[in-house]
Design a protein around this nucleic acid. Structure first.
Length: 228
DNA sequence: GCGACAG
DNA sequence: ATCTTGTCGC
């Protein structure tokens, strides 16, 4: 398990920024674009469910982007070693998620994880852990706050409000559906907050959860019932 | 000492 | 996460 963290891009010096080309500027602002050939064509979503006390079942769903057609769905289940402790979710769920990930025939360009990315006491949420392990862009989509203060965004779909922790914006609270509780979007690894927010909204169809996460959640439940 | 606390 | 009934609103 990795203990490093990825640092979100610091605000560039406006004076230097102005001397850069448009591409150099984007590279400074968006880590996701540092890889010149990066294109988001395949996006994955993952989620875990539990069978009894000590068995975890994780599911990965692979979707096309921006079409959001389901291309693959895989799962893996095994024993769970640790209890749930806020702030240490990755140690409980990441090992099994990684085993499920290996079963994907095709690998995604980006992974959407249920839980937080850098919006974590040590900037090491489960989405960040997975990104570090796989050296792949990841982002977190959480249903509840872990740390930080915020005010709710407007009631209309697309509204955003910042989640602040120690003077820093660590996530965006995004309304993915009119009059429904918003979700917490944060970068996990190799990407920035703005890109994560845009992608989450682009994946929000008619439900609260963005499609990758919603479908992973759905299939995790389906596979679980098949195992029982 | 008293809350808050991803899944 | 999981256990669970009815209920409010589009």
């Amino acid at each position: 398990m990795a203990y490093y963290r990825n640092f979100d891009t610091p605000p560039p010096d406006p004076k230097v920024l102005q001397a850069l080309t448009e591409q150099q500027r984007q590279m400074q602002q968006r880590i996701i674009l540092q890889k010149p050939d990066f294109e988001l064509k395949l996006i994955a979503g993952c989620d875990s469910s539990f069978i009894g006390e000590d068995t975890i079942l994780s599911a990965f769903v692979l979707l096309s982007y921006p079409g959001l057609e389901v291309l693959e769905k895989v799962w893996h289940h095994g024993p769970v070693e640790l209890p749930y402790i806020p702030g240490f979710l990755a140690f409980r769920e990441a090992p099994n998620l990684l085993k499920a990930y290996e079963k994907l025939q095709q690998k995604p360009d980006l992974i959407m994880v249920d839980g937080h990315g850098i919006s974590h006491p040590r900037r090491l949420g489960i989405a960040t852990h997975l990104g570090l392990h796989l050296n792949k862009p990841t982002m977190g989509v959480a249903k509840k706050v872990l740390v930080g203060k915020y005010t709710e965004p407007d009631a209309a779909k697309g509204s955003v409000a910042p989640l602040i922790y120690k003077e820093e914006v660590i996530a965006n609270i995004l309304r993915t559906k009119d009059n429904v509780k918003p979700v917490f979007i944060s970068p996990g690894h190799l990407m920035d907050l703005e890109s994560a927010t845009e992608i989450a909204l682009a994946c929000a169809t008619r439900y609260k959860l963005p499609e990758p996460t919603r479908l992973a959640d759905h299939y995790a439940a389906v596979f679980k019932s098949e195992v029982l």
